[in-house]
Amino acid sequence: MSRQAAAEQLRTATAEIVEAYHAALTRLSSPLATREDAWQQCRYQARNIVAECAQSLETGRPVEVTGVGEYSRLLGAHRVTQQIPVSESVRAAEVLWEAMQDAVARAAALAPGERHAVQQEISTAFRTATGMRLYQGIRGYEEAARPAGPAGRPESADRPERPERGSGEATAPAADAEAQALELLTLREREILEAVREGLTNRQISRRFEITEATVKRHLHNAYRKLGINSRVQALNKTFPGQS
């Protein structure tokens, strides 16, 4: 019961943690705080990380959230467009941990017989949550920042060479067309499609990103237009082939 109380205390402190996090980033003149678009993304990540720490403490096992890796990778790629160095994200993780310390101490105090264990479990959950996000974010950043190849697209060691003409590979042009279409999507459009893949309704998506349902519908409409499709199922099949 004391661990549940500690977990609830941590959840209750989320707004306080986020406020302290923003203040610390602002003092450091981090573009993650001074740019509104970047801060909205950081705030969303911070809230989720705190929630995952609380849930891990409550259940006693690591939290697995669908779509977090893909979101983090897209966000890392978007940092290139925002011209925000990846080192800012690494530093922000440490700043967030510092911002959580008072709340972590209060939560641990609710489990006097397990104070040290509670603090350690929160620390482990935090490192797991931020480590995965940073890893995927750095991957996305590096892929987006990679010099363009001969065709003007990023070179990738993971992408197989295009078959020679006459090799029987008839799907390459279609695959290229799909890839180019996906590159036209904004980060928010991709975020919303990722939420659709999780099975969220427009109302749930609007709550997650703190936007109106009308705005969700507008982003979906724009994404559908760019992808040349007209339904959620088609969007998932085209955006996440083999995963929807």
Results as ranks from 00 to 15, higher is better:
residue 140 G to D: 05
residue 135 Y to V: 11
residue 158 D to K: 13
residue 144 A to Q: 05
residue 135 Y to W: 15
residue 162 R to M: 03
residue 139 R to F: 07
residue 150 P to A: 07
residue 141 Y to S: 00
residue 148 A to G: 03
residue 144 A to F: 00
residue 138 I to R: 14
residue 143 E to H: 06
residue 135 Y to R: 15
residue 159 R to K: 14
residue 164 E to K: 11
residue 141 Y to E: 07
residue 137 G to A: 12
residue 153 R to H: 02
residue 143 E to M: 02
residue 138 I to A: 15
residue 153 R to W: 01
residue 141 Y to T: 06
residue 146 R to A: 13
residue 163 P to V: 07
residue 136 Q to W: 11
residue 159 R to N: 13
residue 152 G to H: 03
residue 161 E to P: 08
residue 160 P to F: 11
residue 156 S to M: 01
residue 162 R to F: 02
residue 137 G to H: 09
residue 141 Y to L: 13
residue 139 R to M: 12
residue 153 R to M: 01
residue 151 A to V: 04
residue 157 A to D: 13
residue 155 E to C: 06
residue 149 G to L: 05
residue 141 Y to R: 11
residue 152 G to C: 10
residue 153 R to Q: 04
residue 141 Y to G: 03
residue 146 R to F: 01
residue 163 P to A: 05
residue 152 G to I: 06
residue 157 A to L: 14
residue 164 E to C: 08
residue 135 Y to N: 12
residue 152 G to A: 03
residue 140 G to K: 01
residue 159 R to C: 08
residue 150 P to I: 11
residue 165 R to W: 02
residue 151 A to P: 00
residue 149 G to I: 04
residue 147 P to V: 03
residue 161 E to T: 00
residue 164 E to S: 04
residue 157 A to F: 10
residue 154 P to Y: 00
residue 154 P to K: 01
residue 150 P to L: 10
residue 163 P to K: 06
residue 150 P to W: 02
residue 135 Y to A: 15
residue 138 I to K: 14
residue 137 G to F: 02
residue 148 A to L: 05
residue 135 Y to T: 15
residue 165 R to Y: 06
residue 139 R to W: 03
residue 146 R to I: 00
residue 165 R to S: 12
residue 142 E to G: 11
residue 161 E to I: 05
residue 162 R to C: 02
residue 138 I to D: 11
residue 165 R to C: 03
